[in-house]
Design a protein around this nucleic acid. Sequence first.
DNA 1: CGTATGCTTGAACGTTTTCAAAGTGAGTGG
DNA 2: CCACTCACTTTGAAAACGTTCAAGCATACG
Lengths: 232, 232
Amino acid sequence: MPDSFFEEVRGLHLFSEMSEENFSALMRAAYVQNFPPQIELISEGDPSDFLHVVLSGKVDLFARWNGHETSMATLRPVSTFILAATIRDAPYLMSARTLEKSRIALIPSQDVRAIFDIDGDFARAIVAELALAYRSVVKAQKDLKLRSSLERLANYLLRQQDRAHGAEDFTLPYEKRRLASLLGMTPENLSRALKALKPYGVLVDGNRISITDRADLEGLAKPTPLIDDFLL
Amino acid sequence: MPDSFFEEVRGLHLFSEMSEENFSALMRAAYVQNFPPQIELISEGDPSDFLHVVLSGKVDLFARWNGHETSMATLRPVSTFILAATIRDAPYLMSARTLEKSRIALIPSQDVRAIFDIDGDFARAIVAELALAYRSVVKAQKDLKLRSSLERLANYLLRQQDRAHGAEDFTLPYEKRRLASLLGMTPENLSRALKALKPYGVLVDGNRISITDRADLEGLAKPTPLIDDFLL
DNA sequence: CGTATGCTTGAACGTTTTCAAAGTGAGTGG
DNA sequence: CCACTCACTTTGAAAACGTTCAAGCATACG
């Protein structure tokens, strides 16, 4: 097995504090695989056999019910997913698919649980990770329940601008249809919402957004760290 | 300090596995307080000074933004809340208020973090708790994004019936206005939605619900363990 | 070029909220 | 014991919001 990816995995908060011995044990049966775009990696309801780590590419977490489908989150390198299912040895609640060609590390769930049981440092790292994940879902739920779709979009754009280090214009990281689903609306509604933001200084050219008057947009969006801060 | 409540706290999954010594250390500065109904225990944005444990009564977790307010979850004895904020030493994302006269244990957050750092068993118990909490928020989000308000209500009623051990009729655990907020709708809309469920065998008399034809209601609700099972 | 895909637009429709008002019921004080 | 009050719930009508369906556009790709 090529071990080049060990370092990347080791670099994650989740694995950086544990002993070399336990880390090796964890990696013993782990492996890396390359996936083309649009591959469904896992399906909700399946038993959680592997903890997944996105090493490169982009992965969409989504959920289905009664013929509908909605995007729950998008994962970029380097991050893990379905940690909670792995820990509880419970079925996945979400499905995952690659959005681009992606390199994914797969760590057998039973190994994760075994090391978790004997390594306190690893257990503590998992706590930190889960607490963060929990808080980000709570924020997403507040976003959904307290804001209209226009307000959600406005805040999303402000967050994207922050990620682009405040640049006046930036590129949407994925298709608008997916963004719409992430924001809990239809593509048509997103299209109209983007137009509705024009009076607030939002210019759209394809996937390119520019925000000419951030203060004006903030007046509408009313961002708050208790919903919109990804670090908090 | 009376130590009668120690046993109740000790009985929680979260605290049952840790050593006596560490448990004592955790309880050293902890105390219990009685609150009347409608007291705001914590407010979102506040620093997380205490881990709270509901020993009796009922507590509502809610969130506010821009003049709106929404109910996020209701806690019954015996359970903890704001564990994630305590662990990360971050501000509360939700506010909490008593719905009834309640007995709440307060454990200083810094003590929780200190014991967490030295007690692997406690860290593992926290992981289990957080993973469960995470999964329940994910389910709530799927419920919100994939279902209409009528479908959410129908599934809620089926879950309540399960909690009542399948009894044909049961009582709603709190006011309809709060239920509406929990389900992400207005009281008016809930009122109409309950009427709309009459053809599916749902009879309403004040807070008393009876489900005369569960199969019929399930046909509309299409419950799934991946959203509606509280144990999974 | 032609075709596939995603995006936009328009119109109709359905759902949900808002506002206003009336009904209900529990608890209080006369 | 009754009348009053207050809070919650229900109802109705109108408006806002969001979805659906159908068609047209743009763009990228063979």
